[in-house]
């Protein structure tokens, strides 16, 4: 039987936390996708189908068609998904936050880029 989403999310965050820091945006984007897809492959029996519109129970990494620019921060991209914003910076830093107005934008995960700096978005 598939593990719970909360359990899989915990494993995803833990693996992402201990992974080697990315050096740039594309590496960070791939890192998130690789780790989340591996977790879902290992802990669920749900086939990978990122174009599905209605949920199939699987969690998917940020999608290219959900990208947003971040005003005043040209080195930062925001990828929107239901319930989260995933910020990925040109230095490979990653931040996952809850979008307003659900709350004030609480950060639920943060990982520095390979230069040791975190996402600058305020």
């Amino acid at each position: 039987m598939d593990a719970s989403k909360a359990g899989r999310l915990k494993v995803f965050f833990e693996r992402l936390r201990v992974a080697e820091s990315a050096r740039n945006h594309d590496e960070a984007f791939d890192l998130v996708a690789t780790i989340l897809n591996a977790v879902e492959d290992e802990m669920t029996s749900i086939p990978f189908n990122p174009t599905t519109w209605q949920t199939d129970g699987r969690m998917y990494p940020p999608q290219a068609d959900a990208v947003r620019d971040v005003p005043d921060f040209p080195n930062l991209k925001r990828y929107r998904s239901i319930g989260h914003n995933t910020f990925i910076a040109d230095n490979g830093a990653i931040e996952i936050a809850v979008p307003p107005p659900t709350d004030g934008g609480t950060t639920v995960f943060s990982k520095n880029g390979s230069d040791g700096k975190h996402v600058q978005r305020r």
Binding site: A6, Q54, M59, Y60, H84
Partner: peptide
Amino acid sequence: GMTTNPGRGAYGEKAH
């Protein structure tokens, strides 16, 4: 697509 309590206990989930 529509989802209530978005993001609670999940990440990158598609619409309910």
